[in-house]
């Protein structure tokens, strides 16, 4: 955790969560994100519980008991901690890194997170999700359709850890 340096949002690319795809071969989910202005996609492999949590948030499903990301949201609501935005800020060896920007009484903080947790919280708090042009360029999933047809036979790498 560090304090927030001044960062311009100008160059950031806004993303919306398009859908969560179940990968039946492995115990993972694929989160498909899209730019609002383009049909191109951005895919991130996440664990099954995290992917399901993102899907529940998309469906606005209210589970009978608060799940882990609902609890984080509730902490925020009780303490007045606002989730300002989530930035998919880096990718190293097929692992994506997210930064969650928080604000409370004018004090900004940024915390390191896996994209899955960051997205699960962003959807619950209606916070915008961005990525940088650099990460967008280096993303996987440029050829989603071709890739999806190969899904049955191809081994799956590039998993979020």
């Amino acid at each position: 955790m560090t304090t927030t340096p001044h960062q311009s949002l100008d160059n950031l690319i806004p993303l919306t969560v398009n859908r969560v795809v179940e990968d039946s071969n492995t115990d993972t989910r694929i989160v498909v994100l899209t730019r609002p202005d383009e049909t191109e996609t951005f895919m991130i492999w996440v664990g099954a519980p995290e992917g399901d949590s993102i899907r529940r948030a998309m469906d606005s499903a209210l589970p009978p008991r608060p799940m882990s990301h609902d609890l984080i949201k509730n902490f925020g609501e009780h303490f007045g901690i606002k989730t300002q935005r989530v930035i998919l800020a880096d990718v190293k060896s097929s692992t994506y890194y997210a930064t969650v920007y928080l604000e409370n009484n004018g004090v900004e903080r940024m915390i390191d997170a896996r994209p899955s947790d960051a997205i699960a919280l962003a959807l619950r708090t209606h916070a915008p999700i961005y990525t940088t042009p650099d990460v967008w360029k280096r993303r996987s999933g440029q050829h989603l359709d071709a890739w999806l047809t190969k899904l049955d036979t191809k081994n799956i790498g590039a998993q979020e850890v």
Binding site: M1, F75, V100, I111
Partner: peptide, 18 residues
């Protein structure tokens, strides 16, 4: 190697000394 969900939850609370 990466913060798991409850590590993230703790970072969230630590950020404002909760």
């Amino acid at each position: 190697p990466r913060p798991m969900t409850h590590d993230f939850m703790k970072s969230f609370l630590d950020a404002y000394n909760a």
